[in-house]
Design a protein around this nucleic acid. Structure first.
Length: 898
RNA sequence: GGGCGGUUAGCUCAGCUGGUCAGAGCGUCUCCUUUACACGGAGAAGGUCGGGGGUUCGAGCCCCUCACCGCCCACCA
């Protein structure tokens, strides 16, 4: 065949290979499942975390795409009924954050635009960016079904959201109530506890005097109660002062009143066991509208919460003279004023935990509002049981505990957001204060409580938490709530793969919603990967400037290399560092594979015709060996993929390709193919074995390195044995190899011969023999079988070790200190090699063997070991001892003790 | 305040249910531009598997404890 016509004739250039290959995949239509599954085919469906539509691709995406694509490609090759639905998430709060920043550049903001115009801008923005992520995912090689591409803001999702909420409501899981939520003054919305990021900070603990009400009703200048607070501005909302009921210091004050500074409000002094008498002064100001603890305390004591902050965390009209001030300015002003009044008793630095908005970093303010809640107790119990009882398993299993802990302590889910970009909550209010939840896009025809007509109803302006629609993803993407063919065929899904950082956000929600709405676990396995960290182990972030853009990396070294780097040396659930060294290594491997294929293609023995190939049928030792190794590695990689051990799979497959196939087999095959003494049939067969093993190696590597393998596959197609019309022309859809039989004899023969080759090479190096020189090599065969093996092996040994060999009987005298032991016999370099003998070589080896032998001998002399260890283990050690003794005997130096 | 993970060659990390498990890649040292590949080949050096106890015939692998590093959860002013 004319290799010059193949694409492999040139240097490996991923940037030219990859687009072409992806086009071929797309053209084949194989990303989309066939109309009907093959009878008996196993279903394999991936649930993919839809990336935020506003984000650009980062290494986290690269990792999940790689992991999921490996799995889907593997299962596709296995012949499973595979489906991978791609899509993007509308990410309401994140999207608004991004758009707001863009608007700010134009001098615009949300408020001035108004909801309608703002949403128009958002959709325009989405049109610009929506496809970008998809395109980037394709650069990574994602073999997802783009015909089913989805968006969490598309009509299907919208309907799923309405129906889901209605069903939850009908089942009594939805309620509306006043609660103290986490309010972000910058995003101007409530956020969930999960989005409220707690950070350790050092604040200040101020001690403030609240004067008691005097006899005349005015503040008593001589008597006061001191309270400690870290947020003095909240005093404007104080409704009481609380002490512990058993606190002797304050017993007499309980029931009396204190006067709130500035506002003059009378605050009852109450007793509550929630107060820790050892903290601060033992007296606490109670601000029910701005502190979760105080809110509870207030409820117990019938206090009325007064909100003193507006939506942007400025003091509102309830704050008297401080109205209009930002909360932190107000804090400072109040401290100053108290100081002036002489009522600031002290201030100390105080370590504390402060909540920040996950998105924008702003300090979260507890804020009282009426919110929509989903009751989670039942949903969580069921979701927990699914995992506990193994219907859904989490990999790695340690995350089951994390999941369980969260589910056990779950609080009701506040699903409303005061944002605009997202699914509007499908609740309609009537003027009488009732609300009606409807799953119709246009809303209900009338208030279900009082019958007022639709025209009098107004829809809730709050939207859903992004994770509500994400939580429906596994089934909403398959057509739910309709009973579609897709839903019947592909649901529940097989593997949901994502980072452990969104276990609660997403996985937990999908479990709860999926079980309730579809009465099934949405996936069988939750496969969690770790985070990708930058060099030095730090988290990648744009602000740190240490983000590696995967698309840039792909441009530079190819998607295959990026994928391999992200896969190798990793284990499920553990973070990894993506270093340049690792990326370079992966690139080098891709290059190696390419060149190996180039070599194979270009080395077809010429001058042969098919008719001549009727020589001896027996395959050579290297051929039998490499096929046996291939069988072993096929079984191994298959098992690892089945166990989701992607790192192990990649390591095993690349190790085989590089070490066994390239470094050993191809070198041995060169000898066979260029052996003028060999029959042309034998030469052809060596080459054909190289082609066949390469073909299967490509199959094994394809899931992790789809592009190069596909390209090479097409180049070697004409050379593949049995390649014909019946064979699929795409590697992607060719069958996953099945492990052939092992050939223990060939493996043993190879191992022995390789040892002789390695030993000879070592002796050469140690003797300082020039690499090109042919050495004289003496081998004292250990036995007649060893001799036979060596006689056969000499044709490989000589070129591989650059030696001319002389086979000697076992009892041949070995020059002092010159021999090195191998399983086949002692080897040493002849004098003719003009070696300056470095005596140490042989004796070091001997000493090493003797240490090993003594260790095993001692073990076998241990009565306890013989008694308690399993027979198989004892036998193994006996064999080992015999082997070691045999080797030492070959060296023939004896040791006086044996 | 709870919980989890990590601590294995200079670096980055694999080591499944305890018995060739002391490994890989990179880096280092030596040699080699031999017609697939120098993004390569050959060889070598390098670790008492964080410390200390314990279980076991036998422990990176199990138990206890301590020390760092990191993460998650958590309403104490």
């Amino acid at each position: 065949m004319a290799d010059k016509d193949t694409s492999l004739a040139s240097r490996y250039a991923p940037t030219s290979v990859e687009p072409r290959v992806y086009e071929r995949w797309l053209a084949s239509g194989a990303f989309t499942p066939a109309e009907e599954p093959t009878p008996g085919a196993v279903r394999f469906v991936i649930t993919m975390p839809p990336p935020n539509v506003t984000g650009s691709l980062h290494t986290g995406h690269a990792l999940f795409v790689t992991a999921e694509d490996i799995l889907i490609r593997y299962h596709r090759m296995r012949g499973d009924d595979t489906l991978w639905v791609p899509g993007v998430d509308h990410a309401s709060i994140a999207a608004q954050f991004v758009l707001d920043k863009l608007l700010a550049v134009e001098g615009l903001d949300r408020a001035s635009l108004g909801r309608e115009a703002y949403l128009d801008r958002m959709w325009a923005f989405m049109d610009e960016t929506r496809d970008r992520i998809s395109l980037q995912l394709r650069r990574l090689g994602a073999s997802a079904d783009w015909s089913r591409n989805r968006f969490t803001m598309d009509e299907g999702s919208a309907r799923a959201v309405r129906v889901a909420f209605k069903r939850l409501s009908d089942a009594g899981y939805v309620y509306r109530g006043e609660a103290l939520g986490n309010w972000c003054p910058r995003c101007r919305t409530t956020i969930s506890d999960l989005e409220n990021i707690h950070r350790d900070e050092v604040g200040t603990l101020w001690t403030i005097r609240y004067h008691l009400v005097g006899g005349d009703g005015a503040p008593d200048p001589e008597h006061w109660i001191s309270v400690a607070t870290t947020r003095p501005e909240t005093l404007l909302g104080d409704m009481a002062v609380a002490v512990h009921p058993e606190d002797e210091r304050y017993r007499d004050l309980v029931g009396r009143e204190a006067v709130l500074p500035f506002l003059g409000r009378r605050l009852p002094i109450i007793a509550d066991t929630a107060v820790d008498p050892t903290f601060g002064t033992g007296a606490v100001k109670i601000t029910p509208a701005h502190d979760p603890d105080d809110y509870e305390t207030g409820k117990r004591h019938g206090l009325t919460p007064i909100t003193i902050l507006d939506e942007e965390a400025r003091i509102n009209e309830a704050g008297g003279e401080f109205a209009g001030l930002d909360r932190f300015d107000a804090r400072q002003r109040i401290v100053e004023r108290l100081t002036a009044l002489g009522d600031l008793e002290g201030e100390v630095a105080h370590p504390m935990v402060v909540g920040h908005c996950e998105r924008c970093g702003t300090v979260i303010e507890p804020r009282l509002s009426v919110q929509w809640f989903i009751r989670t107790a039942d949903l969580a119990a069921r979701a927990l049981a699914s995992v506990r009882e193994g219907r859904t398993r989490i990999m790695p299993p340690r995350f089951e505990k994390v999941y369980a802990h969260w589910m056990e302590n779950i609080r009701d889910w506040a699903v409303g957001r005061q944002l605009w970009w997202g699914h509007r909550i499908p609740a309609w209010f009537c003027p009488d204060g009732h609300f009606t939840i409807s799953d119709e896009a246009d809303g209900p025809s009338a208030c279900e409580t009082c019958g007022r007509t639709a025209t009098e109803l107004t829809q809730e302006t709050d939207i859903f938490d992004t994770w509500f629609s994400s939580g429906l993803w596994p089934f909403s993407t398959l057509g739910w709530p309709d009973d579609t063919p897709d839903l019947r065929r592909f649901y529940p899904t097989s593997v949901m793969e994502t980072g452990y950082d969104i276990l609660f956000f997403w996985v937990a929600r999908m479990m709860m919603l999926g079980l309730f709405l579809t009465d099934a676990e949405p996936f069988r396995t939750v496969f969690l990967h770790g985070l990708v960290r930058a060099e030095g182990g730090v988290k990648m972030s744009k602000t740190k400037g240490n983000v590696t853009d995967p698309v840039e990396l792909i441009d530079e070294i190819g998607a295959d290399a990026v994928r391999l780097a992200l896969t190798s040396g990793t284990s499920a659930g553990n973070d990894q560092r993506l270093t340049m060294a690792k990326l370079d290594g992966a690139r080098n491997f891709a290059n190696k594979l390419w060149n190996a294929a180039r070599f194979v293609l270009g080395s077809e023995p010429i001058g042969d015709s098919a008719e001549e190939q009727s020589g001896p049928a027996g395959a050579s030792m290297p051929e039998r060996w490499i096929r046996s190794r291939l069988a072993a590695i096929t079984a191994d990689t298959t098992q690892r993929l089945d166990r989701l051990d992607l790192g192990g799979y990649a390591a095993a497959a690349t190790e085989f390709a590089w070490n066994d196939f390239c470094d050993w087999y191809l070198e041995l095959a060169k000898i066979e193919m260029r052996d003028p003494g060999a029959s042309s049939a034998a030469r052809s067969r060596s080459w054909q074995t190289a082609v066949d093993v390469l073909a299967d190696t490509l199959r094994l590597l394809h899931p992790v390195m789809p592009f190069v393998t596909e390209e090479i596959w097409s180049a070697i197609a004409p050379a593949r044995q049995g390649a014909g019309a019946a064979e699929p022309d795409l590697l992607m859809t060719s069958p996953w190899p099945t492990a052939g039989p092992r050939d223990a004899a060939a493996e043993a023969e190879f191992t022995s011969l390789a040892e002789v080759i390695r030993t000879t090479r070592t002796l050469r190096t140690e003797a300082g023999i020039p690499a090109g020189a042919i050495v004289e090599l003496h081998i004292a065969a250990a036995s007649t079988t060893a001799r036979a093996a060596l006689e056969d092996g000499v044709r490989y040994l000589e070129p591989m070790a650059r030696a001319r060999t002389e086979l000697l009987p076992a009892d041949a005298p070995i020059p002092d200190g010159r021999g090195a032991a191998t399983a086949l016999g002692a080897v040493w370099l002849g004098d003719a090699s003009e070696v300056a003998p470095t005596a140490a070589a042989g004796t070091d080896r001997e000493a090493e063997l003797r240490v090993q032998r003594d260790r095993v001998r001692a073990l076998l002399a241990d009565a306890a070991f013989l008694e308690r260890a399993p027979a198989a283990v004892v036998d193994r050690e006996r064999v080992r001892l015999a082997d070691l003794e045999e080797r030492l005997r070959q060296i023939g130096t004896g040791d006086g003790s044996g």
